[in-house]
């Protein structure tokens, strides 16, 4: 199947404030990531705090330009589009931001905010449509007149989801979409997302630090560390038999995991000054001398299952 979203060697760097003289340092938030998402496919994005998940999500939607590489949506290169063309595409690609409060306009009723996106994309935007959008996420029609600050944290998160789904996008970047929800409401929202996927072929980049949720939602998983892909493959294979030491460590750290704990040494290095060779080597229990010299390429260990690690002799 041809890809809906295609990332080809995408990087996003942020210039850093100069320290003393010399070249201006850059922070490599995302480095050389390639990824394809088919219609109706859900790709889970996991990795520690600061590993570049939100940045990659924004780049994938053209909300943040890539500093290198190419992003294509439905065959169109986002960087080559005019602002008007990009705006038209926006209806098909939506984002649920990690911080829902910051993404909502505080002085506007939430019903107004939902009606606005509907209108922007030429869709019916009356009270009926707004009420339907709210009810789908477990809120009430009468909530439409209230402002964001009048809701609980989890209610605001659901408002952000309601707004993103209202325009019936083909692709959604869901950045920690259920992090503020109790398990019951969370289950309802995950079901809703699965329904959208079944009914409309919604494809998703699903970001979460809750690995059980990722396992439940994702077809494929991408594991990021310091902005680089460590491992990518089918969700079932990754959760059953991870091939990269970092993935194994992440899985072992999850509560209730039966995997032997793999203690990561030291701290996450600064993404502005990543280690030479393999960026993970400073924390890897299996690092050997060669890891300081060789940047491991992402290579297939099975069909569509790849890892960036030179060691093939590990039983993880």
């Amino acid at each position: 199947m041809s890809a809906l979203l295609e990332l080809d060697g995408v990087s996003r760097h942020f210039p850093q404030p100069r320290r003393g003289f010399g070249r201006r340092p850059v922070l490599r938030a995302v480095q050389d990531v390639s990824l394809q998402v088919a219609p109706g496919e859900v790709v889970g994005l996991v990795g520690e705090s600061g590993s570049g998940k939100s940045t990659l999500g924004r780049v994938a939607l053209g909300l943040l330009p890539a500093t290198a590489g190419r992003v294509r949506f439905a065959g169109q290169d986002l960087a080559a589009l005019r602002p008007r063309e990009l705006r038209a595409l926006r209806r098909q690609m939506q984002m649920v931001f990690q911080d829902p409060f910051a993404s909502l306009n505080r002085s506007r009723s939430i019903g107004g905010a939902i009606a606005e996106v509907l209108k922007l994309h030429g869709l019916p935007h009356g009270t009926t449509e707004v009420a339907a959008a709210l009810q789908r996420v477990g809120l009430e029609a009468s909530d439409a007149t209230r402002r964001p600050r009048q809701f609980s944290g989890g209610q605001r998160q659901r408002i952000a989801i309601a707004r993103a789904l209202a325009v019936q996008p083909r692709f959604l970047v869901a950045d920690e979409p259920v992090s503020a929800l109790d398990v019951s409401v969370q289950a309802g929202i995950l079901r809703l997302l699965q329904e959208q996927r079944g009914a409309l072929g919604l494809a998703m980049l699903f970001i979460s630090h809750d690995l059980t949720v990722v396992e439940a939602m994702a077809d494929r998983v991408l594991v990021l560390y310091l902005g680089r892909v460590m491992e990518a493959g089918p969700a079932a294979a990754i959760f059953a038999a991870p091939r990269h030491p970092y993935t194994a460590a992440l899985l072992a750290a999850a509560p209730g995991s039966f995997r032997a704990k793999l203690d990561l040494q030291g701290e996450i290095p600064s993404p502005a000054a990543p280690p030479s060779g393999c960026v993970f080597r400073t924390r890897c229990p299996f690092a050997v001398a060669e890891c300081t010299r060789v940047v491991p390429v992402l290579r297939n260990v099975e069909q569509r299952h790849a890892k960036a690690c030179i060691r093939d002799d590990l039983a993880l």
């Binding site: 705090s49 944290g153 920690e176 630090h209």
Partner: peptide, 10 residues
């Protein structure tokens, strides 16, 4: 909810 955005190790 101080740790909602944090992975288990952190």
């Amino acid at each position: 909810e101080p740790t909602t955005a944090l992975d288990v190790t952190i």
